[in-house]
């Protein structure tokens, strides 16, 4: 039976996710066995939340483009050359160490982002903010974050309407046939900047209205985010257990044979 968001103390979820990501980060390059174990753990957590492992794996794919950052290492490091040859006019070699670093970074990023995905599937955004506030997140940030989440969709819709209006007036960056329409870079930037400016003015006017309404209802400046839907009495014990397990996972990463 899949549990609905909020049935788990969100503090536990946040701490578990952070400890898990730290444990994965601490794994040395090439500890693929430990990484596979970590992935099984996150896939299990995901499955308990009703997310199929392959769906989770696919959604984790958003980090793949970042491997570009590590790619040069494969060809630049000169240690442990596993292939050497000519590609066109360039002599090229592939370094085993570089390959291991790039692949490990990619796998770690991919496993970690899946942990984040499971985190938001287990607790919804406002609950996470409440949990963070209970974990001593400064009030100003918690209030700001809570309101940002609350007004996000509204302002994004407004921005999208403006973009549609821009496109409808032929200011869209690329025309139907792929040709560029609109004026010079400066002109295009000014059009876009005007949209940003008018969106800010609308947001500001909205903020002023909300402020007036809040003040007239006796607001004190801090957003009341209510209490956690579920507060776990044994939170401390569970957190210690989870962190111990994850440290063990990390230690496993240190001792397991590396490829």
């Amino acid at each position: 039976m899949a549990r609905v968001p909020g049935q788990v103390d969100a503090r536990a979820t946040v701490i578990a996710a952070l400890a898990f990501i730290l444990a994965v980060a601490l794994m040395p390059a090439g500890a693929y066995v430990a990484m596979a174990a970590a992935w099984l753990l996150v896939a299990t957590a995901g499955a308990l939340r009703g997310i199929a492992p392959l769906t989770l794996a696919r959604r984790g794919g958003i980090v793949f483009p970042f491997v570009l950052a590590a790619l040069p290492l494969i060809f630049i490091r000169s240690d442990e050359v596993i292939w050497e040859g000519l590609v066109g006019p360039f002599s090229l070699h592939v370094s085993g160490v570089g390959l291991r670093i790039a692949l490990s970074a990619l796998l770690k990023a991919w496993i970690s982002v899946q942990a984040s995905i499971v985190l938001v599937a287990t607790a919804d955004a406002p609950t996470i903010v409440v949990a963070l506030r209970r974990m001593r997140l400064p009030d100003a940030i918690a209030t700001s974050a809570g309101l940002t989440i609350r007004y996000l969709e509204l302002l994004r819709d407004e921005a999208q309407r403006m973009l549609r209006a821009r496109a409808a007036r032929s200011v869209s960056p690329v025309g139907v046939g792929g040709e560029r329409v609109g004026g010079s870079i400066a002109w295009r930037a000014r059009t876009t900047g005007n949209l940003v400016g008018s969106l800010f003015l609308r947001a500001y006017a909205r903020a002023a209205r909300v402020e007036e309404a809040a003040l007239s209802r006796g607001a004190t400046g801090s957003l009341s985010t209510g209490s956690l839907p579920t507060a776990d009495r044994y939170l401390g014990v569970k957190v210690v257990a989870a962190v111990t397990l994850l440290l063990a996972l990390s230690a496993f990463g240190q001792v397991v044979p590396r490829l």
Binding site: L147, R188, T192
Partner: peptide, 30 residues
């Protein structure tokens, strides 16, 4: 003005949607 700060946060989110091409393949955005 905490409410202003929160709503401006949502504005920054939304404003990051606005983009336009600067040069081939590179899009200017905020």
């Amino acid at each position: 003005r905490p409410i202003l700060m929160g709503i401006v946060g949502a504005f920054i989110f939304a404003a990051q949607l606005f983009n336009f091409p600067v040069a081939a393949g590179t899009s200017g955005h905020l």
